[in-house]
Simulated assay, not measured.
Amino acid sequence: MATLFPFNSRTVVAVILVFFGFSSEFGLLNQVSALGINYGQVANDLPSPEQVLRLLSSLRITKTRIYDTNPRVLAAFAGSGIDLIVTTPNEAVAGLADPARALQWVSTNIIPFIPATRITGISVGNEVFTSDDETLMANLVPAMVSLQQALVRHGLDSSIHVSTANSLAVLSNSYPPSLGSFRPELAMVIEPLLRFLSDTGAPFWINAYPYFAYKDDPQRVPLEYAIFGSGSVMVDPNTGLHYDNMLYAQVDAVVFAIARFGYEEIEVRVSETGWPSRGRG
């Protein structure tokens, strides 16, 4: 179960990154494999990468996601043993559909830092399918294919996964979880993504925030259910599965949505989740 660590305003790194093992064979959580942190860098007066590393190490964090390929961060994490997921910005996706440019990107942003820095994943863009940018969506899987080919050229395809982080808004329905389904208008772009993930053994990453569901409908969404509290349980009437928190239910909805496309072997991992600590949310 994820724990939200209390950071003060200067040392906030980002939201929790949770690596759950979700199996679509039964449509339920089967194990919690690791816990990590999303390390965001869009803020003022940020601690240095070296300070962040010390903080994460003190919390025994073993996995981190960054939203770029900042060479200072990649160099600072060398020898730390922490697994890193790096990100290509959305604006770079179209260019990376060109195999030559994808090979150059890997040669520049990945090769100089491994194996000292444990880069284990590349997120190609972020929440692309809810961007309303049809060109970006059309180029996503070709860019993933090109980056995968570049990793194969360097013999890194077995150690670095290529995937993309998706908003939960890719679903048209998430309740009950057994009726989870993707938005119909995304079917033509979701299916090639799922085929790629199935072919390469990469996970489906989802940014799942129970907070937003509670914020949008606080009268019908119990707060305890949204924040892993005790005593609040939802039962899926179609499967009989019991969910004692919304996060598990949200991710299971994704599991069922993927299974509807026939890709039951794809693992679902939470790439972002969390709760605001201050501000208006």
Rank of each mutant, 00 (worst) to 15 (best):
I111N: 00
L84Q: 03
N173M: 14
S158I: 09
A75R: 13
L140I: 06
S158F: 10
V12E: 15
G121L: 01
D216Q: 09
F196P: 06
Y209N: 07
D68R: 02
T64V: 15
T164A: 12
L247C: 10
A75S: 14
T88Y: 02
S181K: 10
A94Q: 14
A187G: 08
E91V: 13
R260N: 03
T11C: 10
D236T: 06
R220L: 13
V86P: 01
S58L: 05
W205R: 05
R195D: 11
R10P: 08
E91F: 15
T135W: 03
R260V: 01
A213L: 13
K63R: 15
M137F: 01
D68I: 05
V141G: 02
I16P: 15
M246D: 10
E191T: 09
A92H: 03
Q149R: 15
S174W: 12
L56V: 09
I111G: 00
L4I: 12
V124E: 11
P210Y: 06
K63I: 12
D83G: 15
V170Q: 06
E127L: 09
R220I: 10
R72M: 14
S123Y: 00
E25Q: 04
R260A: 04
N207E: 11
D157P: 12
S167C: 03
G281A: 14
Q104E: 11
E272F: 08
P71C: 04
P115D: 07
S277M: 15
R195W: 05
T62H: 05
A75I: 07
W205K: 02
L4E: 11
P112F: 03
D217V: 02
L74G: 08
E50Y: 06
P99E: 06
L56H: 09
P142D: 09
V170A: 08
R269S: 09
P89T: 00
S167M: 07
M137Q: 08
F5N: 05
A257P: 01
T64N: 13
T200H: 01
D216C: 04
E264A: 11
A257T: 01
Q149L: 14
R183H: 09
V15F: 15
I206S: 07
T87Y: 08
S172I: 02
Q51M: 10
Y175H: 12
S131T: 01
